[in-house]
Simulated assay, not measured.
Amino acid sequence: MTRTRARRGAALVPTALVAALVPLTAAPAGASPGCTDETRPTIEIIPGVPIPAGDGCDDDTPPDTVLSASTPPDAAGFVSVSTMTFSFGAQVSDGDAGPFGLECRLTGPAQAHDWRACTSPVSYAGLPDGAYAFSARTVDLGDSARTPDDGVAPTVTDAPDLDPTPASTSWTQDTKAPFVFVTQSAYDEDTPTQPVVTSSTVPIRLNSNEPGSSFECTDNGAPVTCSPGRWELVGAKAGRHVFSARTLDRAGNASAWSDPIEFFVPTDLARKRGWKKVKDTGYFGGDAVRATRRGARLVLPRAKVGELRLLAPSGPRMGKVRIRVGRRDWHVVDLSGSRSALRQHVVIDRYSGMRSGRITIETLGHRPVVIDAVVARPNRFPPAQ
């Protein structure tokens, strides 16, 4: 009888031990406020031998990742460099002490790789042009190898132990400079490399070989606002103009400055004694001067003249004027003829040599004359393209 009791007493020990190891009332693993460590609790039935004693808490606050690029993409998402360096690191909001690891990934036409362990900073050199994306994420190494669930029902899903929203930077790399194309629309048969502009604006066409490019322009060395496609320079002052442009693509690469184009803006005439201002949209600048009596004079400031033209309308009842530079010979211009709103009368051609002095225009007779503008310039021109 005594042995039987002893056996029954011995048989009760494992049951008590199991009850101690796995309490029937143990709560399932789950998120706990302030939980930063998923290590399961233990007890020591045998001193020095810890044994899991139930579910631990679940750290459901994943780490964040911060990321910065050596060359941030511009507003259009472009960079103009072929080497990119990224610095990144862990950021926590719940006081978790870690330890933490880092993983990164690169997608693109070269050097691409899937998620892999990495350390900050990471550099990629010699990248070919194309579209790329770099991502980095933080891993809670302390929790990723653990689960707070002891495996006894009910089983719960462990919250992620890595950053579910990796930090990312996307960019399009473009390291090639674009090309610029500048075309002037003004045409001049006599001086094609430096045409006389007879409209109130100067039409110029700007194009680039890369869509979406912007432009920078200069007129006589001063910057002017310009735009792609057909564009018009407004308010150009009288005289010789040298225009140049370059294009900048969306990555900020700049082309070389274009070969300069030249044009000449006539001098619009102001009303003088004996002359009356008349307006018409067909006139250069929208106005001209008109005289109806003999001897009415217009005197322009002193200039060096190698070519002289008179812009004036013609008509069957128009009169004549004479023009000279300084004390040189007079040149007579007959404005009669078929009706034309604007004609260029070449008074001194570009091959007649240089002269200097005040330019004097004088009416001959009493027939009406209208003078629109004057072209007075040296006879040195750039070679034909």
Rank of each mutant, 00 (worst) to 15 (best):
E189V: 12
P154T: 13
V202I: 11
F215L: 05
N207R: 12
D190H: 14
G151P: 06
D140H: 00
N220D: 15
S170G: 12
E189P: 08
L141F: 04
E216L: 14
S185P: 04
T175M: 14
D150M: 13
V139C: 01
T201W: 07
Q194T: 06
S208T: 06
K176I: 14
A167L: 09
T169H: 12
N207I: 00
D143C: 00
A186T: 01
A145L: 01
T201A: 10
R205F: 11
R146S: 10
G212I: 09
G142S: 01
D140W: 03
D140G: 09
P178M: 05
T193W: 04
D143E: 05
D188A: 02
D190Q: 13
V197S: 01
A159E: 10
R205Y: 01
T155A: 11
A153S: 04
T172D: 03
F179Q: 09
D150N: 15
E216I: 10
F181C: 04
T175G: 08
P192N: 09
L141C: 06
R146W: 05
V182S: 05
V139H: 03
T218L: 11
N207H: 04
P148A: 03
L141D: 05
A153V: 11
A145P: 02
P192T: 01
N209D: 15
G142N: 03
G221I: 14
R205T: 11
L162W: 15
G142R: 15
T138G: 01
F215R: 11
S144T: 15
P160D: 08
E210H: 12
T169M: 08
S208Y: 08
V182G: 04
T201K: 12
T218M: 12
F181M: 07
Q173D: 00
G151S: 09
P160Y: 08
A222G: 10
P154W: 05
G221R: 12
T165S: 14
T201Y: 04
S214W: 06
W171R: 01
A177D: 08
A222L: 02
I204E: 00
T218H: 02
N220C: 06
L141G: 00
D158R: 11
S213G: 04
P154K: 12
S200M: 02
T165N: 07
P164S: 09
D140S: 11
V152R: 13
S144H: 08
E210S: 09
P223I: 08
G212W: 10
D149N: 08
D158Q: 15
T175H: 09
